[in-house]
Design a protein around this nucleic acid. Structure first.
Lengths: 141, 141
DNA sequence: TCCTTATTGAGATTGAGTCTCAGTGGAAAT
DNA sequence: ATTTCCACTGAGACTCAATCTCAATAAGGA
């Protein structure tokens, strides 16, 4: 598990002609280790709390590499801070954000995906990626 | 047309207990006058170029009022600058953003809207608002 | 081990957006 | 029309996430 993820990272760095460093490993480990949707500062602080020396700049730089290589997904919730989540398995999902509790629920709907592609096609395009967020509230009762 | 939009603005300001000022009128006129998706700096500069004295702070403050009162829709494209568009008629639409040309195409699909609500309902929520953006590219050839 | 050069960290910088506060002006009351 | 109150404005300071700079460090191939 750990070794496999490590290999994934090393392979990507090699492919990109980048060096494997302990900082890059720490950032990847930190993001991979939880499925929450975390911001860069949180990731940075958690790494530091584990007594690993790393700078904010390196955290941001490493995240960029991970996002570009699809190991991490970047998302905006609307408060100015980007959130990150690992994407070990390549399954895709969208997000439902509760405006009352801040909870983030993941969902996936095949029909929705197909509909999107159809709409794009109708306009002469094909979908490269998409952002779909439902800002919701619990049913009254 | 102009008078009607002006009345809409005045009504909202009155409702909110706010005063009608020439700056607020300028900001509303500027946004209302084009259907493009513009950022605050662009709106600010265009007003200044029309020889109207207004500050960035006032542009931001006025946009907030307009957004809160649903005269203007705010959207993020992912580059850190919010974009704004007028919503005179209350029709809703989503956006398709071409990653090659930067073109922004508006679209609306009833089926999509219903599907979203259904998905939220299945999780015990109701949709308050949503963000749906398709980042697309033209079909090859 | 040596050597090249990518990487790092500390801190400066950027840039969108917000805040402060003294001066201005809208508009209600007279 | 004048007064009076207090919301509004502008200039610029400030915030905060994210990026950049550059001297020092450390991969990792030879």
């Amino acid at each position: 598990m750990v070794d496999k993820s490590l290999k994934v990272l090393k392979d990507i760095l090699r492919k990109e002609g980048l060096r494997f460093t302990s900082q890059r490993q720490s950032v990847w480990d930190e993001i991979r280790g939880s499925h929450e949707h975390r911001d860069a500062e949180d990731i940075y602080m958690c790494i530091r709390n584990n007594d690993v020396r790393v700078s904010r700049a390196t955290v941001y730089r490493t995240i960029d590499v991970l996002v570009k290589n699809r190991l991490v997904r970047k998302m905006e919730v609307g408060d100015g801070r980007s959130r990150y989540e690992p994407r070990l398995d390549d399954e895709h999902h969208d997000h439902m954000i509760c405006e009352e509790t801040g909870d983030i629920i993941e969902f996936f709907n095949e029909e929705l995906e197909n509909l999107q592609e159809k709409i794009a096609n109708d306009h002469g395009y094909t979908v490269v990626r998409h952002v779909h967020q439902l800002f919701v509230k619990p049913f009254p009762e």
